[in-house]
């Protein structure tokens, strides 16, 4: 990633060592997961097939879904209007179910730059972007972005001119947010699929901009 490089190898976002994901010895919490899952299945809450299908569904979700939505908004003005008016409905048109939460799309322009954070937990538009990156869940990002957004953006390599208003969105409740980054100059000849390739995860969180090619 393009921002500050500190030695966080093997450390959690808050600076603590990670525990091994695939520990050779069964951890207490892994044993709890197995026990909870088996009991939930036995009590008829879920089935093993549903658990497997849900994992497959989440594994299939990644930022390419959000990128497809952005590219459609760049190329189809009527879709862009619908997306800004009702993000959930517009995403559903493309076959992307954003789940029980509602999606709000916010658009970057020559005058406005949007960035998304969740200070209370780590709400994230997971159905369009996949699971959040570790830094999004970190205390540093959660605490600083609402107070010194430009300093945070600068650490991601993004320095905005003073005449651009920064709009920070704190996902405090039932909404999820996706940023529609500005379409890069010189991309008039590209089709929707090629444009989607320019749309990065970070540009849809608002800590980056779309690639220029």
């Amino acid at each position: 990633m393009p921002h500050d490089h500190h030695d966080h190898a093997g450390l959690s976002p808050s600076g603590h060592p990670y525990r091994e994901d695939q520990d050779n010895s069964l951890s207490y919490w892994q044993a709890m997961e197995i026990a909870v899952r088996e009991l939930m299945i036995e009590k008829g809450i879920v089935t093993a097939e549903e658990v497997a299908a849900q994992i497959d569904a989440m594994d299939a979700r990644d930022p390419s879904q959000g990128a497809a939505v952005v590219a459609r908004a760049w190329t189809d003005p009527a879709f862009r209007e619908r997306l800004l008016a009702d993000g959930s409905a517009a995403s559903a048109e493309m076959g992307f179910d954003v789940g029980p939460m509602k999606l709000i799309a916010v658009e970057n322009t020559a005058d406005v730059h949007n960035v998304v954070v969740c200070t209370l937990c780590s709400c994230y538009p997971r159905n369009l972007l996949g699971l959040p990156p570790d830094w999004y869940k970190s205390r540093a990002y959660r605490s600083r972005t609402v107070r010194e957004p430009r300093k945070v953006l600068a650490e991601f390599g993004l320095t905005l001119p003073e005449n651009v208003t920064v709009r920070v969105h704190d996902s405090t409740a039932d909404m999820r947010y996706i940023v529609i980054p500005a379409r890069p100059d010189g991309t008039d000849g590209l089709d929707e699929a090629a444009l989607a390739e320019l749309v990065t995860r970070d540009s849809m969180i608002g800590v980056g901009v779309a690639k220029t090619g």
Binding site: H3, D4, H6, A9, S14, G15, D21, W135, A140, S143
Partner: peptide, 10 residues
């Protein structure tokens, strides 16, 4: 711990 935004992902 509100320092630089940590790097990396897993």
């Amino acid at each position: 711990l509100a320092g630089p935004i940590p790097d990396g992902d897993h």
